[in-house]
């Protein structure tokens, strides 16, 4: 009896531990810690409800976004929301999100757009009818505005439509770009951005694919490159240090205005500030950069007058990789690897 009791006790705890380990991972996402999903909500998740989300919250969100009109069930909506929230850690920079933080994150999403996009990606007919009614003409207009021509715009919009319909496959699996929409911004904004991405990528790809006979590569200069004057080298170093010390927004302003030749109005529209604010920032930024370069030059041994004379050098004489100076290494900005 004692051995039987011991065996029964062992088996009971063994199966309890197994079930605990199994149920512990349910309803959590890889980015979510175990403590973020309380056991009570998992254990009490009713049938038809995704685990990890209170049924009342799911009911509220499901009613709010009118998911039924798009053909999505509550379970599908719950899975979509849990997937998005888990991928973004429910908007938390670090640590586990509480129930209230999760609910706030879900309520901050564009749920109606998200439901429509995901229902279209899932192939629901009613959702596609609604999508076409809402976004067909705006999409064409946006494509025309991006390409600058009616033909090119309609061509671009048609290509994106084909992608959205899921005509492209990868590894035999139908792929729809709408699956990548997570409801952070508006769906029409996402469509415009996707159109712009497609247009830019196609443009850059087509320019890389120039016929070889049209490409006249310059012959290499057999002479050794001349040594840069010491002042110019110091100037390049001082400029590089001054640029790297600036804030990301300052570098974005400099790049947009001086390299991309964007107007103050365009930059102001992207940053959601007034045009005059951008102008003032640029003015202040260039003044500060000049002072910083002068300080750097003086620190490197140049006199004040020599530093000011060095600033008058032709910028074309300075060998500076502006792109590398303005951009921090991608590894620190985007540690994730892009999908192949």
């Amino acid at each position: 009896m004692t051995q039987e009791r011991r065996a029964a006790f062992f088996l009971q705890h063994f199966f309890a531990a197994v079930f605990w380990r199994i149920f512990k991972g349910v309803g959590t996402t890889p980015a979510q810690s175990v403590e973020a999903a309380p056991l009570e909500s998992i254990a009490r998740a009713p049938a038809g409800m995704p685990p990890g989300m209170p049924p009342s919250l799911l009911d509220e969100l499901w009613t709010e976004c009118d998911a039924e009109a798009c053909g999505l069930s509550k379970l599908e909506l719950g899975e979509i929301l849990i997937g998005i929230g888990g991928a973004k850690s429910f908007g938390q920079a670090s640590g586990a999100a509480s129930r209230q933080q999760q609910a706030a994150y879900f309520r901050g999403l564009r749920l109606a757009d998200l439901v429509l996009a995901r229902a279209c990606a899932a192939g629901h007919e009613r959702a596609w009818e609604r999508f076409v009614a809402l976004y067909e003409q705006p999409l064409i207009r946006a494509a025309i505005a991006i390409t600058g021509s009616d033909t090119g715009g309609r061509d671009l919009a048609g290509q994106l439509y084909a992608e959205l319909y899921g005509l492209s496959t990868r590894d035999g699996v139908r792929r729809c770009p709408l699956d990548s929409y997570r409801g952070t911004g508006s769906l029409i904004g996402w469509l415009r951005t996707t159109l712009a991405q497609r247009h830019v990528d196609r443009f850059r790809r087509s320019h890389r694919e120039l016929p070889i006979e049209d490409y006249d590569a310059p012959a290499a200069d057999p002479a050794e490159p001349a040594e840069q004057p010491a002042g110019i080298a110091l100037l390049g170093k001082a400029v590089a240090e001054a640029l790297q010390a600036r804030e990301p927004e300052d570098r974005f302003l400099l790049a947009s205005y001086y390299m991309d030749r964007r107007t103050l109005l365009e930059i102001a529209g992207v940053l959601h500030v007034h045009e005059a604010t951008v102008s003032r920032k640029l003015h202040r930024l260039t003044a500060n950069l000049r002072k910083q370069v002068l300080r750097n030059l003086e620190r490197d041994g140049l006199s004040r007058r020599a530093a000011q004379e060095a600033l008058g050098a032709d910028p074309r004489d300075i060998e500076i990789d502006w792109k590398n100076l303005l951009q921090t290494p991608p590894s620190s900005a985007f540690p994730e690897k892009a999908a192949p």
């Binding site: 705006p138 991006i146 904004g189 570098r251 991309d260 992207v270």
Partner: peptide, 25 residues
Amino acid sequence: ILVHLAGCARCRQVLFLAQKAAADS
């Protein structure tokens, strides 16, 4: 994103094009 945009001409172009499309549409 700002850090990336400061050095990525492609994303800046995408951003400004999308902004232009929004303003036009």
